[in-house]
């Protein structure tokens, strides 16, 4: 009898890779085939997709259910404004620097809020985000409570023409989404990712098997916070205007993101992607109905949580045993091959 072999790719994952590559080429070519409004919408979708993947890694895998990631979205946005206006940096350099600064800022925050568990942790993250909002509202150089706009000179440093800027801003959003999804995928596929997945399922067993839980969570928190700040920078590069209420909005940057992850399927890589598509499909169809839109979102969230706690992707996966990202290991023994 030959020894069992271990593989990871499945037919579904191979097909998914091909489809993803075709989709990527089509999306990259959007400035040549999509209208201005569609491109703005797609840029927004890609940035929400990135936020959802990051929140899912942090909450769905590391168990850090934060309702305060708007702290880092807003921080990234404000750093874009501060570093370009006062630091003279190019906007793209400023956004990358914002990621680095967010990583540094997130470490003392983590040591503080990691002492809190469960619901207390969630509330703690929200309080931190409010502290950020109130602090940035005090900075009069950045417009205080009413905010400020990105000066024309800085906007023009991106690209001379308006269409050039819009294309660049879209490509940055696409690039960010590709980087975030690839980074999360490669991390989860690594041995550290295996450890994180174990933490997702049982912390007590994970620590008994040699996994340093506190350190793993800290790494995830710092890395997701840094990426979240970069996405925040890109969001406000699209908007060109920032204010404390917009930058640190719990609704826009956390509630919608949680909705996306929960209806898509928390703790899976595919979930945030499906959730983002569903969220925007609902938003665009219900856009004309005003507040009814939010009530429908709430209703959908409640039904999904009650009827399909593992989200839409959980339903599909259980029904068809599918996996689009080849994370799982499959063991094949000699008998499976018909030998």
């Amino acid at each position: 009898m030959s020894a069992p072999t271990v593989t990871r790719a499945t037919r579904a994952s191979s097909v998914a890779t091909v489809i993803a590559l075709i989709a990527l080429v089509l999306l990259a070519a959007a400035p040549w085939w999509a209208g201005r409004a569609d491109m703005r919408l797609m840029g927004e979708i890609l940035l929400y997709l990135s936020l959802a993947c990051l929140w899912n890694l942090m909450a769905g895998y590391a168990g850090l259910v934060s309702v305060g990631q708007q702290a880092f979205v807003g921080f990234g946005g404000y750093m874009l404004f501060a570093l370009t206006i006062f630091g003279g940096l190019h906007p793209i350099a400023a956004i990358i620097a914002a990621g680095g600064l967010a990583a540094i800022v997130s470490i003392p925050i983590a040591t503080l809020i990691f002492r809190l568990k469960g619901a207390y942790f969630a509330i703690g993250t929200w309080v931190i985000a409010e502290v950020f909002r109130l602090s940035f509202a005090q900075v009069s150089a950045l417009g205080g409570g009413s905010g400020s706009s990105l000066p024309v000179g800085i906007v023009k440093s991106l690209a001379a023409s308006r269409s050039g800027r819009e294309a660049l801003s879209y490509w940055l959003a696409l690039g960010a989404a590709v980087v975030v999804i690839s980074a999360v995928y490669l991390f989860l596929r690594s041995r550290r990712g295996l450890a994180l997945t174990a933490i997702r399922d049982s912390e007590v067993a994970a620590s008994g098997l040699g996994i340093d839980i506190w350190r793993t969570k800290l790494e995830v928190y710092v890395v997701t916070s840094a990426f979240t700040a970069i996405i925040g920078g890109l969001i406000f590069l699209q908007k060109l205007r920032i204010s404390p209420d917009a930058a640190f909005s719990v609704n826009d940057w956390t509630a919608f993101v949680i909705f996306i992850v929960v209806i898509g399927g928390i703790g899976t890589l595919e979930g945030p992607i499906i959730g983002t598509l569903l969220f925007f499909a609902l938003r665009e169809t219900l856009a004309d109905f005003g507040t009814i839109y939010l009530m429908v979102l709430g209703l959908v969230a409640i039904v999904v949580m009650l009827k399909a706690p593992k989200g839409v992707w959980g339903l599909i996966r259980d029904r068809f045993d599918l996996e689009l990202f080849p994370l799982s290991y499959r063991v094949r023994t000699a008998t499976d091959k018909g030998a």
Partner: peptide, 9 residues
């Protein structure tokens, strides 16, 4: 058990 992972994992 790590319930979401396979026995091998």
């Amino acid at each position: 058990p790590f319930g979401g992972m396979t026995v091998f994992e």
